[in-house]
Design a protein around this nucleic acid. Structure first.
Lengths: 213, 213
DNA sequence: TGGTGTGAACAACTTCACAGCG
DNA sequence: CGCTGTGAAGTTGTTCACACCA
């Protein structure tokens, strides 16, 4: 992979992730080859945008022909680093945490669930998918350290999110994905993404309000 | 509200939603008044950005003083249209659907859950929060029509998402929020947002991969 | 011929810097 | 005096249009 050293837009990275989905679907629909036109149709992105996005990382297509769907999927996974093995943990095994743990997505994208934590006595010891049992949050620091867990997913309520983040950081976590509706604060070296599911709904309300006018 | 008629950046709308959260927290921490500096600190947005965002919609602050936290929260809710009443339905009462239904968020932001649907025989008839029982998906069109439901949230697996979307549209839905990992297609008039939870994880993997280099 | 890859034009968004006002 | 509100400058991201090549 020859990464060209111009800075890559954050938006491009976001789209790469959706391209993977669409390429999988195109393969399932028996398209060994696709074009920026067809792929764009499939994931609702302009063909020019797709070509530009890919051009940041190299040349993956054949002029006059298009892209090999399977090969391109592999290339994008390589770019995103999904061919690595990412030891991952989920803290907060409520409905949202369980929803995430259920996804086939994890293993397909290289995220290996090593541990899950909850503060609820009744949940501790329960076995979740992948033969992992739920541990008390007091074990976070030790486990992250011992198992060399690099990614932490926070799906706790807002009021314990910061505390949990601190414990994960103390254990030596590298990246955090926070679903709690509060922006947690961590040292500079930690890669952090705060996700707000509900803001999408607010967004929808706004768009609908505009239309009424 | 005096909406100035320059076009408002989509990113601005996204941030307004987070400002609400932060303003609530600031109030809880006994700050009747805040500044763009303090609010920015609280939600990790630059002060200039906050002032610019608000300036699209009017003048909400007092020079030399700052913003009334409670009043500003109300203003933003008004801007986003969260003071309306949005009859809402959730289709697909799996873990993710249940996670959403549990949120206190809904009622606070004007979304009233009117109905929930699932195709699983065993779930049908079960009562979920708010005294709403789960109905079979065959009832979608009729119910949306009769109850004048305007917002539909799709939390089904990928392979039934399009079918469900079609039924909601047939019933006369106005806006759709799709969490299924496939971009559904609907007529132009429908306001649609596709949300990809998992792409955030891919994003995190990418950022961590970069750091290793 | 037909679809990629890409510089150059364009558009969107953010930051700056300071005037204006309580 | 201090903090907002805002044009203007700067930055980032998208679209265009066409050279290029299997």
């Amino acid at each position: 992979m020859k990464t060209k050293e111009s800075k890559i837009p954050e938006a491009t990275i976001k789209r790469l992730s959706t391209y993977i989905n669409c390429l999988e679907r195109l393969q399932a629909e028996n398209n060994p080859v696709t074009s920026s036109e067809m792929l764009g149709e499939s994931c609702q992105v302009s063909p020019a945008q797709i070509r530009k996005d890919l051009s940041y990382f190299g040349e993956f297509g054949v002029r006059g022909v298009g892209y090999d769907t399977k090969k391109l999927e592999g290339e994008i996974k390589e770019i995103l680093g999904l061919n690595h093995n990412w030891p991952t943990t989920v803290v907060g095994v409520g409905k949202l945490g369980q929803a995430l743990l259920n996804f086939a997505f994890f293993s397909k994208h290289g995220f290996r669930i090593i541990a899950a934590f909850d503060s609820d006595e009744n949940k501790i010891g329960n076995e979740i998918a992948h033969g992992v049992t739920i541990l008390p949050t007091t074990e976070i620091e030790k486990t992250v350290k011992n198992e060399k867990i690099t990614i932490g997913i926070i799906t706790t309520p807002a009021d314990s999110a910061q505390e949990v983040a601190d414990k994960l950081v103390a254990g030596g976590i590298k990246g955090l994905l926070n679903f709690a509706p509060i922006k947690v604060k961590v040292p500079e070296i930690i890669t952090l993404r705060n996700v707000s599911i509900t803001s999408e709904l607010d967004n929808l309300a706004y768009l609908l309000t505009q239309k009424k006018r």
